[in-house]
């Protein structure tokens, strides 16, 4: 599966993932606490500058940011119509700044680094017996491993519909897809246990 991570050697790439995540959390807090349009405008410009410094180019950047910027624009227009222009501007600037900063962290942090951070963050949860930290990485790997298989199966079920002259419907697609996919669970679980990957308690 493609990821949104972009190979590179910018300052943000070299920064430790933990520092980036903490900085992102801290800046979102600040952005929500401060209402001054001047501060928010500066933050949005700053976010734009940071994102631009990744050197993705206009086309790539637009492609990646379009869905979220569109949502923000719609909400801003709504606010303009229903509330006030001042509020609309605040929403627009605040959310744009946040989106740019978050997208910059995503583009400069590899999947593996993220998984390491998640595993570390789950340690306290492990101590209270909620999850096993190592399970998270394993499960994420499992999902990525089996998405293509599910898609292949989906295609096969769709083809079976066409072959029999049936129109694909949510119900007739979803039910066989789910049953056929989950049926593999026993064997996959047995394989994990047989290889001693999740050492028994």
């Amino acid at each position: 599966m493609k990821t949104l991570y972009v190979e590179g050697d910018t300052f943000l790439h070299r920064l430790s993932p933990r520092v980036k995540l903490v900085a992102l959390a801290f800046s979102s807090l600040l952005l929500f606490l401060i209402d001054s349009p001047l501060f928010l405008a500066a933050a949005a410009v700053c976010g734009g500058w940071i994102y631009a410094s990744l050197g993705l180019g206009w086309r790539q950047s637009l492609l990646r940011l379009r869905p979220i910027l569109l949502t923000i624009a719609i909400v801003a227009v709504f606010t303009l119509v229903l509330n006030s222009p001042g509020q609309a501007l605040t929403v627009l600037l605040r959310l744009t700044a946040l989106a740019l900063l978050a997208a910059a962290v995503t583009a400069t942090t590899s999947t593996g680094d993220f998984i390491d951070e998640i595993t570390l963050a789950a340690r306290p949860l492990e101590r209270i017996g909620l999850v096993r930290a190592a399970d998270l990485g394993l499960s994420i790997g499992l999902v990525v491993r089996f998405v293509p298989e599910v898609l292949t199966r989906y295609q096969a079920i769709r083809d079976a519909h066409h072959a029999r002259g049936l129109k694909p419907r949510p119900l007739t697609l979803a039910v066989p897809l789910i049953i056929l996919t989950l049926r593999n669970a026993d064997e996959i679980a047995a394989a994990i246990d047989a290889r001693g990957i999740r050492a028994q308690k």
């Binding site: 599966m1 394993l138 790997g141 499992l142 990525v144 491993r145 298989e149 593999n184 064997e187 996959i188 394989a191 994990i192 990957i197």
Partner: peptide, 8 residues
């Protein structure tokens, strides 16, 4: 064997 390989 498809179900034996569990990471991508």
């Amino acid at each position: 064997p498809q179900n034996q390989i569990i990471l991508p």
